[in-house]
Structures are given as structure tokens and as C-alpha cells.
């Protein structure tokens, strides 16, 4: 675990071949370059609550009073926008396995190095670049820590 963090930190930049069309730069524990156009927080919110698209609430609780049945496998999303920068959140969604190979969190932009992917999903990320930008934009609005 520690060694993975060290490895991530020690490499100044790593080429992430997540998308065949576009190689993404990882710098330290962040992904500074946007994956698409500017994110839309409201669209991001819709992705987060959609249990067939973002799946986020299956594992995470979030400060969304209209949402019921949120999971407790992962940290509360409250305060995510205060704990991390945009670039850090981008990497934590797009490629969390880069920071911790053992993580339960899927890498939403990863298409390579996966095994036995069902046919309809082969070569496709869970969310596309724009969707990830939208989710990041929404998470950045969550400044208040969980009570």
C-alpha cells in the first residue's frame, strides 16, 4: 500500500493509456489535464445518483437528502471538494487503481489490463471523459465535511 503511494509520488509523470484516442498525463497523485470540456455539476449529480451509470451511491454515502439507500463500503463523498483538488479527484475517478492496485473502486476511465470483460463493454470505459468531468464538477461543490 505504502509502496504504491511512493511509486505514484516518485514518478513525475506517467502515461496513462486509458483511452486509445488520447493518452492522459498523471502527475504525482493527480491528473491535471481535463478529459473533455468543462464539467457540468448538475449533470454530474445525475450521474452520481444513477445506479446504472455512475453506481457511486452503491458504495458511497453523499450529502444528498433526496437519496435513500446509500452504501457504506467507501468514504462519504461529503467534503470531497475540500479534501481534493479537481486534478486529484479526476485521477481518483478515472484511475484509482494507479494509486492503490488493491482498491475496491473501479477505474472509470480504464479500458486496458482488465480481464474477462463482458462483450458489450470491451474497450469502453465505465464513464466517458465528459461524464467524468461532470462528476468532478459536482464533487467540487461538496465542500462541507460529513457531520
Amino acid at each position: 500500500m505504502v509502496s504504491h503511494v511512493l511509486r505514484a509520488a516518485s514518478l513525475a509523470a506517467v502515461l496513462l493509456m486509458a483511452s486509445p484516442a488520447k493518452a492522459q498525463m498523471i502527475v504525482g497523485d493527480a491528473m491535471p489535464e481535463p478529459l473533455a470540456g468543462a464539467g457540468d455539476a448538475m449533470r454530474g449529480r445525475a450521474i452520481i445518483i444513477d445506479r446504472q451509470k455512475g453506481f457511486c451511491l452503491l458504495c458511497h454515502a453523499a450529502p444528498l437528502p433526496d437519496q435513500r439507500f446509500m452504501g457504506n463500503l467507501a468514504p462519504n463523498l461529503a467534503g470531497a471538494g475540500a479534501r481534493y483538488t479537481q486534478a486529484q479527484l479526476r485521477l481518483r475517478i478515472a484511475m484509482p487503481s494507479h494509486l492503490n492496485p488493491d482498491t475496491l473502486m473501479p477505474s472509470y476511465f480504464r479500458t486496458a489490463g482488465l480481464y474477462a470483460v463482458a462483450m458489450p463493454y470491451v474497450g469502453k470505459p465505465i464513464l466517458d471523459g465528459q461524464q467524468i468531468e461532470d462528476v468532478v464538477a459536482f464533487l467540487m461543490t461538496l465542500k462541507e465535511p460529513a457531520p
Binding site: N72, S97, L104, L114, Y121
Partner: peptide, 19 residues
């Protein structure tokens, strides 16, 4: 396995009982 890159054990051994 899969696009989610999860094993059976990650849910049913490591996180059984959680929501």
C-alpha cells in the same frame, strides 16, 4: 474480472455485512 475489475471475494469475503 470484468469492467468493474472486482472479484467475488472482494464483496462476499472482504465486505460481507456492509451495505
Amino acid at each position: 474480472r470484468g469492467q468493474m475489475n472486482l472479484s467475488c471475494a472482494q464483496c462476499h469475503d472482504d465486505h460481507a455485512g456492509q451495505s
